Amino acid sequence: MDLNDVGVFMDRDGTVSKEIGYVNHPSRYELLPHTAAAIKKLNNYDIKAILATNQAGVARGYFEEEMITKVHNKLENLLAAEDAYLDEIYYCHHHPDVGEGKFNKDCDCRKPKPGMLLQGVKELGVDLEKSYMIGDKISDVEMAHRVDAQGILVLTGYGRGNYENDRDEWDTEPDYIAEDLLDAVEWILMDLGVTIDND
């Protein structure tokens, strides 16, 4: 089965890494357990592993845009140490209500708008109807559903609280609710009909 056009988009904070609020220094950035193992499974099947994250701390003046690059360099190094990698990293540094200049913008890339998913189509050739978005907020699921992708809610980060306290107010339902990123990836592989290699 050709999985080259399948994209698995992942939120960053609370999904791939610990949710600590705005990450204003690489030393504060830590992966969640099983993150590298989850991404390595995607790599093993040539499924595109793509980060898609809102980073409005730039627009809010909490840190310079360069800090996002530094944090993502650390992320890639942590993954590489476990023989895993991301095919692409997309981030939105805009905010519609705060910030100055180019950062103060009602853009198409801020989740739940699907601009970062559409970038994956343009730059990586993913087929969104075969693709997935994983995140710890229902806005991640909504983003996926806007472009006919599947949306998965993880219970890490804000996910468990979002699920237990706010689900009566959701406008959409996750296609799957996962304990963490690894659980989500294993469900995706089963959904794709892939025999999971647990080595």
Rank of each mutant, 00 (worst) to 15 (best):
S139L: 12
V126C: 03
T172K: 06
E88N: 04
A52Q: 07
C92A: 10
L181R: 02
E19A: 15
K18T: 11
V154F: 07
H95F: 03
G151I: 03
P96D: 04
M67Q: 13
V6P: 00
Y85N: 14
N198C: 04
Y29T: 13
G151V: 03
I68S: 12
P96N: 05
D127A: 12
I134C: 01
L155A: 06
N73I: 11
D2E: 14
S131C: 03
I89K: 10
H34G: 10
G161L: 07
D127S: 14
E65P: 12
E30L: 13
G120P: 03
W187Y: 09
G157V: 04
I177F: 00
E65M: 03
I68N: 15
I196C: 04
G57I: 05
A37L: 12
I47E: 14
R28I: 13
I188N: 01
K137G: 04
N43H: 05
K105W: 00
G157C: 05
G57F: 00
L31R: 11
P112Q: 09
Y62M: 13
L78V: 03
K137N: 10
L78N: 01
S27C: 03
T35C: 14
E65H: 05
I20Q: 14
S17W: 00
L86C: 10
D171H: 13
V185T: 01
D166M: 12
N24Q: 08
L128N: 07
A81S: 00
H145I: 11
E173A: 15
R167S: 12
G157Y: 01
K111S: 03
W170C: 00
Y45H: 15
H95G: 06
E164Y: 02
H34W: 10
A144M: 13
A184S: 03
R28E: 13
D171F: 08
F9G: 04
N44R: 14
W170E: 01
R146T: 08
D127T: 14
K74S: 03
Y90S: 08
E65K: 08
G151Y: 02
G61P: 05
E164D: 15
L75C: 10
L117V: 06
A149N: 08
L153T: 00
I39Y: 11
E164F: 04
R12Q: 06
S27W: 01
V141E: 08
A144T: 07
D171P: 07
W170F: 10
L51W: 12
T195L: 12
L118V: 07
M116W: 00
A81H: 00
W187P: 03
T15C: 07
C109K: 02
P26E: 01
F9T: 10
Y91W: 06
A84C: 02
K48F: 06
I188T: 01
